[in-house]
């Protein structure tokens, strides 16, 4: 597969997943709003902190109020990670590799793009309850996943898209978990209180993991949720699960066998995945939840950088070579 095409498909996978997860971020708060006692206000600040874009936010917005945060995460075109930016980039990448996509896939991405474009004049962020809008975004992306699942051949392109999707999802699940770190309880004594319980519940619901968690762990409590979202071997949004899938994709692309590596990207992802495979919640809590998550995110970024330089930047090196020879 052409390097340029692989690059675009990889980012198509990442951007679509990013858009979907931003819709999920915002869901955390809508889930909370329904259940919070009347005297407690919803905190919007943690959502921005969890995305890691708080500096860009504070440069342009006064307060962390509902409308501003929703606008920032959803339709702010100067935020490169907002839903509208992600979908625009996803479609741009899809256009570049259109001849590699099934017709239905392309048409759905294109429709999604036109849908989000129309949301700006409709002032979605001003609405009291814009959940139907976010549901539509999630549903459209899920529909796309379903379509690709049943129409795209399992050739190299498929694995690039899956690789992008799983790496992005691993990162975003870690960030959703991090929202909880930034969400303040009124007093430290409230750990384990009904409010604490509400926070964890909202988190699980936003990743569509509430019922599954209940069945596996039963009681809602911090250790259980951390275990579930980081270490679950079964839940398709847990960080471990995503890394394992991403590693398999890389192996399918390069032809490496399980537990082997032939390049730095495979080495990095294999190392991270096995480290997680032999850790447990107490290891995470020992270092600190937020610190562990930070570390995970950096390692995932590093894997992505390795992929970029091994598979996509052949051309750049060639150009440099050419210049040196002349």
């Amino acid at each position: 597969m052409l390097s340029r095409v692989a690059n675009s498909i990889y980012w198509l996978g990442r951007y679509l997943e990013r858009a979907e997860n931003y819709a999920r971020f915002i869901d955390v708060n809508f889930n909370l709003m329904l259940d919070l006692p009347p005297d407690l206000k919803t905190q919007w600040e943690p959502l921005v902190f969890a995305t890691g874009d708080h500096e860009s936010y504070s440069g342009r917005y006064e307060e962390y109020d509902k409308k501003s945060v929703i606008h920032f995460l959803t339709l702010d075109t100067s935020n490169p990670n907002s839903i509208i930016s992600s979908i625009t980039y996803a479609r741009e990448n899809a256009r570049i590799v259109r001849e590699n996509l099934s017709k239905e896939t392309w048409e759905k991405i294109n429709e999604l793009y036109h849908f989000i474009k129309k949301a700006t004049p409709r002032k979605i962020w001003d609405k009291e309850d814009p959940r139907s809008f976010f549901d539509k975004i999630k549903n459209q992306i899920q529909l796309l996943y379903g379509l690709t699942e049943s129409t795209v051949a399992r050739t190299e392109g498929w694995y690039w898209k899956q690789l992008g999707m799983y790496l992005e999802r691993a990162d975003k699940t870690s960030r959703i978990l991090d929202v909880k770190y930034h969400m303040l309880l009124p007093t430290p004594e409230e750990v384990g209180s009904p409010l604490d319980f509400l926070h964890w519940t909202a988190l699980l619901k936003s990743v569509t993991g509430f019922n599954t968690y209940r069945r596996i762990h039963g009681k809602i409590q911090a250790n259980g949720v951390v275990d579930f979202l980081i270490f679950s071997r079964r839940f398709p949004r847990s960080i471990y699960f995503c890394l394992k899938e991403a590693e398999d994709c890389l192996h399918m692309i390069s032809g490496s066998k399980d537990n082997e590596f032939h390049n730095k990207a495979e080495k990095a992802i294999g190392a991270l995945r096995s480290k997680l495979g032999f850790s447990e919640v107490s290891d995470i809590i020992g270092i600190g939840l937020h610190e562990s998550i930070d570390d995970l995110q950096q390692k995932i970024n590093n894997i992505s950088d390795e992929i970029q330089s091994i598979f996509f930047q052949i051309n750049k090196d060639y150009n440099i070579q050419q210049q040196q020879q002349e």
Binding site: L2, A6, F311
Partner: peptide
Amino acid sequence: EDLVVQNNKVYMQTTH
């Protein structure tokens, strides 16, 4: 940018 010429032959730059 996907194409290079070497020994008067044209090649595509692929992931492999």
